[in-house]
Amino acid sequence: MVLGINDPWIWGAYIGCILVTLLCVIYGILNWNKGGEDEEGQVKEEVKWHKKEKEMEEDELGLWDEHDA
């Protein structure tokens, strides 16, 4: 007997409701800040790309300078 109920099909449902709510709560907490705005991700990707390109340019320029020297 669980929580004053004999039939496992009923206390199973009772406990199941609480467990599945806990699942929602835990999922919500663990993923609270995950999956933020798509645009934000896209902007970050673009910034990263620009940075990389700049680095590459600088590297090349740097190499060029060395050659020049």
Binding site: C17, C24, Y27, G28, W32, N33, K34, G35
Partner: peptide, 22 residues
């Protein structure tokens, strides 16, 4: 706007439905 809103809504929604029909 994003999946983050849905992740957060899961928490609120779960408790809400338990309290309503439960």
């Amino acid at each position: 706007k994003s999946n983050r809103e849905l992740n957060r809504a899961v928490l609120v929604g779960g408790i809400f439905i338990l309290l309503m029909t439960g």
